[in-house]
């Protein structure tokens, strides 16, 4: 799922400075799971914003809402009535949710309250780690289900670099070397022969972000 972290509150306060009544909108999906923008975080941030503004003698009214999935038009549109009552929106959903609101509510300023960080997995409660970079052409089948694009600092496709040492990465010493993990995994599966296949360079300019905005169209699903 998408992982995010709340922006520093002083940064948020700076861009909310001109406004006295805002809507703080969370999201009940990914950012709830990573505790960056769910109902609880909405309540916490709203309290912090009110106190910060009270302290400088410039009260702010904060309406709070957490739609089930802010990135889906059906849920985003539930905010229509509330948005009419405020001067600006602070969204603590991911960047997708922010832009869904922007698309549907073009006349009101909408600000992000979190930094959308990566697509990741929950390692343990309170710890998340990157697992996918949405490269557009998944090669997990060839690498024992471990992604060298997201987990190797150099995104190498055919074995480790010379900096792999005792199973750790030379760029981030605390991180496991992705290719060590791939080797160990394939060995466990008796599939080491898979390493003999050369994985061709990825077509970043065709399948990935380098070719510009990506879009998926399913004619069979259109209504």
């Amino acid at each position: 799922m998408i992982k995010a972290e709340q922006k520093p509150i002083d940064e948020i306060l700076k861009y909310l400075n001109p406004y006295n009544k805002i809507l703080l909108s969370g999201c009940g999906a990914c950012v709830t799971v990573c505790h960056a923008g769910g109902e609880k975080e909405v309540e916490l941030l709203a309290s912090g914003l009110r106190m910060a503004r009270q302290k400088i003698g410039k009260k702010i009214e904060v309406l709070e809402v957490t739609p089930a999935r802010q990135c889906e038009p059906e849920f985003a549109l539930e905010l229509s009535e509330t948005i009419e009552k405020v001067e600006a929106v602070l969204s603590i959903s991911c960047g997708v949710g922010v832009q869904t609101l922007v698309r549907h509510f073009p006349k009101i300023p909408i600000f992000p309250g979190v930094n959308t960080s990566f697509l990741g997995e929950t390692i343990t409660h309170g710890v998340w780690e990157e697992r996918c970079q949405a490269c557009g052409n998944c090669i997990l089948e060839k690498t024992g289900g471990i992604c060298p694009i997201s987990r190797c600092a150099k995104q190498l496709l055919n074995g480790p670099c010379g900096g792999s040492s005792k199973g750790k990465c030379e760029i981030k010493k605390e991180a496991d070397c992705a290719w060590q993990l791939i080797y160990d995994r394939l060995k466990t599966l008796n599939q080491l022969y898979k390493l003999e296949e050369i994985i061709p360079a990825k077509r970043w300019g065709v399948e990935s972000r380098d070719s510009g905005l990506r879009r998926i169209v399913r004619e069979d699903l259109k209504v």
């Binding site: 520093p8 509150i9 002083d10 916490l44 912090g48 106190m51 910060a52 302290k55 400088i56």
Partner: peptide, 8 residues
């Protein structure tokens, strides 16, 4: 950390 951001 939040209080520091708020200035309390």
């Amino acid at each position: 950390r939040m209080l520091e951001g708020i200035g309390l």
